[in-house]
Amino acid sequence: MRDRERLLAPVPVLVALATLAVVTRAVLSLPRSAEGLYGPVAEAAARAGISNRVTAVLLDFRGYDTLLEIAVLMLATVAVLSLREDPRQLYRRLSERATPVLAALTRILVPLAFVVSVHLVWIGSSQPGGAFQAAAVLGATGILLSLSGYARPQWVGRTAMRSILAVGLLTFIGIAVLAMVAGGALLEYPEGTRKTLMLVIESLLTLSIGASLASLFLSSASGDSERDGR
């Protein structure tokens, strides 16, 4: 066994160097200037009336990728939930630690964060922003509420929480399928409804992704993590 280990020891360095070499060679071989899909995207996004081209790619042209990516996030949340240990310990520990300063700060920050989150969803179609940025703020709010003892992390895993986690993906699929009923292909927004439907999807995605991010954090934080803290 020792022999085998010694024999395999140089493998990681060799694989890494080989990767570096071939990728460097490939990058240097590329032409210095290339359009990619810039032209077609810019043209189609202008026609669809979405000024943020990245949003147009994410929610329209390649909306299917985004739909599956939401599934990845939900899947990871389900997986982490299945690994979590007793959440009650965390709550007990957190409520012991809550201080008046933290409580006051929470009261100020939470409404503010909520407004920021809504704003980020709203501007998503024209400027940098959108569901993920908004959800990151919302998720952080959820974590803050739990850490300051306002919300009980046992909620993670309850039916209500599970519904919030699933509503984003289900809405996304629902609207995608609705387009089929209306006579188009999956995710082919009927003319004139694109902006509204994208906003509905983004809003509910924000809710689910925010809940996902908070659950991911709180599920991992629960259990006997005290052991390494002491």
Binding site: S33, Y38, V41, L58, L73
Partner: peptide, 27 residues
């Protein structure tokens, strides 16, 4: 590499998708 224009949005969208997947895997 778009010669002065804005960058090609498709790779940027791929990065955004990739980041979310990486977050999920890390968690």
């Amino acid at each position: 590499r778009t010669a002065g224009a804005d960058p090609d949005p498709v790779p940027l969208a791929m990065v955004l998708t990739g980041i979310v997947v990486t977050v999920a895997l890390t968690a």
